[in-house]
Amino acid sequence: MEQEQLILWIALVAYVGAGCVAIFAQVMKRRPERSVLALLILGLLLHTLALALRWERLGHGPFVTMYEILSSNIWSLALIYTLASLWIRQIRPAAALVMPVLFLMMGWMMMTNPGGGLLPSTYNTVWLYIHIGFGKIFFGSVLVALGLAGVILSRALAGSTRFARMPDNVSLEELAYRFLMLGLIFDTLMLMAGAIWARDAWGRYWSWAPLESWSLMTWIFLALAIHLRLTLKPRHTVSALLVVGVFALGFLTFFGIPFITQAPHKGMV
């Protein structure tokens, strides 16, 4: 367990290093993108190892306690952001805005209890993995969109010379909404997998539990944001704020509601 904890710590330090280098580069107008990516990949490899060791030790995946949920989401968000930056090099500087979101989650994770929890019997199904997998891709896509929206917003706040090497706001907004569309696909799939799971486990696919309501609100808001942009063609900052709204709702759904009700799904155990 100590070895596992140590590996996790080094992974977190690598993530923090990546974030700090990215922020520093923005302030100093440098181009350290390769070192940021290298640190991210190092963090991801170690984090994967730590998660695997924990899985092996406890006999179940990281989805029972708040600590595990935060850890596995930090991992998947970092992974998706890294993959997106490997694929689309223009977005790399946005790490300066994306990583602080992960810092927040890391700080929170360190305040939660790392002990193991009891795996509810309803978790014994392949739908768990499908549901969680889709959810992670959804939230990762929205995180990338958030980074791009963040660039638009920081240009509005701190002058258009911010992130000067990144494409203009028109392009960033378009790309952010493409990631939102990807998010919509996976959010829809996540809801579907969750509904199938609920029906298998309890006989009904929907029950207006707080988490279900919040996830539906996130989905509707996502549709609303996409439509609002298409219909009213608002300014870039407004489109960017809508992305922030989607992320905030997703964040509350993923971490806020389980935090309040003490279990990922209320009424599950």
Binding site: E174, R178, L184, T188, A195
Partner: peptide, 27 residues
Amino acid sequence: LVAAVLLAVCSLAWHMWRKYRQRSWLS
């Protein structure tokens, strides 16, 4: 319902594929 959702997801993916292939995201 599952069939309808799967159809929704596939057609949305198809829509994205068509629309985004036509035009780069770069202005």
